[in-house]
Amino acid sequence: MAGPLIADQRAAARGQRIYAMLLAVTAGVIMVIPAFGSNYTKTFVMQGLMSCALAGSWNLISGFTGYVSFGHAAFFGIGSYAAGIAIVHGGIPAPLAIAIAGAAAAAVGLTFGYPALRLRGPYFAVGMLGVAEAIRVAVTVAEPVTGGGKGLVLPPEDVLDAAYYAMLAVVTTTVLVTYRVATLPVGLRLLAIREDEVAAEMNGIQVTRLKLGAFAVSALFAGLAGGIYAWQISYIDPGTVFAGSLTVRAIAMTMLGGQGTVFGPVVGSILLSGISEALWTRFPFIHTALSGVLIVAIVLFLPGGITQFLQNRGWIPRSRRL
């Protein structure tokens, strides 16, 4: 469905090729980094992949349906703890523990999503913030199992390369699922919920089922990322894995790239991870403040994200495949 308003179709096609090439090159570089990169580089890229997984999974529910979840970190945290507990207390091998992490997050997503997704607009946003905080406190209180505020120590293993590829696989799957969703009517149905939920329902779209499904899949990917993180870092505590800043980074990245698009979260997380790293090394003391200023700047100057910015200029086509 190529869209209107494109002054020069050839420029748009060229733009799309450049866009695709940049993404392909990035993907290629990311693939080979473990073979050549230092541990520092690997850790940095892995952090970026983790952010990308969170951004991509947040985009699936909030970018498409417009249900702004301010509690996305909860699913990452649930995943981390599910994997951590499975490994420490259950002696379960890591791959299975990570699968459990995803399943646990999806289950929690379904449980809380069913009531929470009945809430509209600001009530859902505030409600999910409350859910995330409540889960964080619950994990902190459940000390015998979770280690409480002191955190949970996993058996240390040097699994950086394996975790790196696992995280890459989660990112790739998230992007593929998003692509699949966006190019089928189901993606348009999700967008229709964002545009006008009543009109969606009245036209026969099964709103509740779709929202819940998107929410569960979104939680699944966030949970998988959390599980891989716990396995690799081998120490987790509630303050880190339930940090609200994880949610907001994911949101900022998606906004920057373009919410409700396929590659928006990828583009956004590459840019924001890069900028953030550059800021961090040069201005460690005012890093947080600069991130804040950066977010404000995105909101004010690029509210539709980079994808829409390029589309408005006719440099890339208005396609839901992007």
Binding site: M1, G3, P4, L184, P185, L188, R189, L191, A192, E195, D196, V198, A199, A200, M202, N203, G204, I205, R320
Partner: peptide, 26 residues
């Protein structure tokens, strides 16, 4: 049914407005 004030999906194209609600095979 339609609405007194049209309730379309504004950020979607005319075609997309229809495809979004169309049932049956994609």
């Amino acid at each position: 049914r339609t609405f007194q004030l049209s309730r379309l999906y504004p950020a979607m194209t005319a075609t997309e407005n229809l495809v979004a609600v169309t049932r049956g095979e994609a």
